[in-house]
Nucleic acid binder design. Structure first.
Lengths: 156, 156
DNA sequence: CTCAAATATATGTATGTACATATAAAATTA
DNA sequence: TAATTTTATATGTACATACATATATTTGAG
């Protein structure tokens, strides 16, 4: 499917909104879908899904330290992600190495492999590049957008 | 999982962003997850998923006219939704009635049942109510937010 | 110290997405 | 009109989400 850059009204073929707040909610949902789809298409060439990429990036943040499942989960954008299954796939692709926690035997701890670091770097470069090309918003507007999204979620 | 109203930095335990544009992208993704999760929790009491609700609302737009799968798909927020499977579930719950297209025999056409109309009305009332309570943004700010999201997606 | 409660992770199931392919009907073309 | 192409929908598979439950380890109350 071609990801058109169209106004919300065209995208969902409707201009009947209860109010601007409802429209903003739908606009956020649509924009998120647009961003995810665009990113996923790029990540396909690295044999990564958006979520697998997210886990790799989180691991990079502490590399070469190991992280446990819970620490990763708490940093995921989508909080209900099922981290154990995502890391299953990353391990089978030799992008991470995992073992049992030494201090806490309940934990599964893991870190990026050398290969994982390389794949992540390449994927990040590609992703940064398409975000820069596809997202047409200034730093100033992006700051305003961030403020408004926080306003939406958080009562002052 | 409790859906906290927290700043992005707390939600993903990171304040290392490449720039404000990248942060805005992540903020959109997180806010969309927040909205969807909040809505889904509410829809659970109507035995509906967010996507099933979206299809019902689309059908409402033409009710009592019938719509075909393609027409519905073109109005979905998430364009890659697999509409045939969603309508399978709506039909088995007697919320929609479907048949073969009379003009075009390839089409599957469908419309809300009486029950579907009722469930949709109740679900919509509940959903509007929690959106009003949970989304803390003024109409003015919502208008700005809509403009900025369009700016993000569409090159001027 | 022992046992109950809490915690970290894994797993099962229903639903949905993303994408490839299959099937049947309509439209087009030769 | 027969054959080909296009279109509308369905289906299969891998991955992910949402949520419930299971298992193992650690913590903490007594």
């Amino acid at each position: 499917m071609y990801i058109c850059k169209v106004k919300l009204e065209e995208a969902i073929k409707s201009n009947k909104f209860k109010n601007s707040v409802q429209k903003a909610g739908l606009n956020v949902l649509y924009t998120a879908w647009w961003l995810k789809t665009m990113s996923s298409k790029e990540l396909k060439s690295f044999d990564l899904t958006h979520e697998q990429y997210n886990v790799l990036r989180i691991l990079k943040g502490k590399h070469p330290e190991k992280m446990c499942v819970k620490d990763i989960a708490s940093r995921m954008i989508e909080k209900s992600s099922n981290v154990p299954r995502i890391i299953d796939r990353l391990e089978s692709k030799n992008l991470i190495e995992r073992g049992q926690g030494e201090v806490d035997g309940r934990q599964t701890v893991m870190a990026l492999t050398k290969n994982g670091v390389t794949v992540l770097e390449n994927a990040t470069e590609a992703l940064n590049s398409i975000w820069e090309n596809a997202i047409s918003i200034s730093e100033e507007d992006a700051n305003d957008l961030n403020s408004l999204l926080e306003k939406l979620r958080i009562k002052e």
